[in-house]
Design a protein around this nucleic acid. Structure first.
Length: 199
DNA sequence: CCTAGGATTAGCT
DNA sequence: GCTAATCCTAGGC
């Protein structure tokens, strides 16, 4: 049975939500695919945009869980996060990569005809492929144009340090679908966790 | 007011 | 591996 995630599903630690989102389906106006890579960011986390408290930029992360937090990266890319925890806490999950599955023609056009492997493998690429922009900031994820469907089966998940940050570089809050060809970068060997092997 | 630098990417050496 | 592109926030004065 497939379930559409609602706001209460995001009222939890960002690292747990990030782990649980691996394998979920993300659509924006029907365009998207399977989430294969995420990162968690929390209020008491020097690498997080909400470290140091509320500002005009990060206010969405202090809003209700289950909404989008959209930010501009390097003046060029729009990146999408899912707000976590109870309202006012300040936490989120960065969507770093998708396996593109729905609206491939639209995605290819937005991504300038790049190869399949490069369509959504990186947070800026996801933003471009799904046409993320600032108007989606604070928008609820259980209402159009967003749809997020829960992963259907337990999946093998790799864990490792987050990418592209300069603080808290060792915190292992990056999660990925083990063996996926759509990750932004490979995980170190042995970084696998996931469902315990059946005895 | 001023400005350093960032949860990145693409293209070139 | 190196770095330009490009914007705008956050923090300092």
């Amino acid at each position: 049975m497939t379930l559409q995630l609602k706001s209460s599903d995001f009222n939890d630690d960002a690292s747990r939500v990030a782990r649980r989102l691996i394998g979920a389906i993300l659509l924006v106006d029907g365009v998207g695919g399977r989430i294969v890579e995420t990162e968690a960011y929390d209020r008491d986390d020097p690498a997080s945009h909400c470290f140091g408290g509320r500002t005009s930029r990060n206010q969405a992360m202090f809003g209700p869980p289950g909404c989008a937090y959209v930010y501009r990266s390097y003046g060029i890319h729009w990146c999408l996060n899912f707000v976590c925890r109870e309202q006012g806490h300040g936490a989120g999950v960065l969507i770093r990569a998708l396996e593109p599955l729905y609206g491939l023609d639209v995605i290819r056009e937005r991504r300038d005809g790049r190869p399949l492997r490069e369509l959504c493998s990186g947070p800026g690429r996801v933003g471009q492929a799904l046409a993320i922009h600032r108007d989606y900031n604070s928008h609820p994820l259980d209402r159009p144009p967003f749809e997020v469907w829960a992963a259907e089966a337990p999946l093998p998940v790799s864990v490792g340090p987050r990418i592209g940050i300069s603080k808290a570089v060792e915190t292992p809050w990056r999660f990925g679908l083990t063996g996926s060809g759509f990750l932004s970068k490979p995980f170190r060997e042995g970084a696998k966790t996931g469902p315990s092997p059946k005895p």
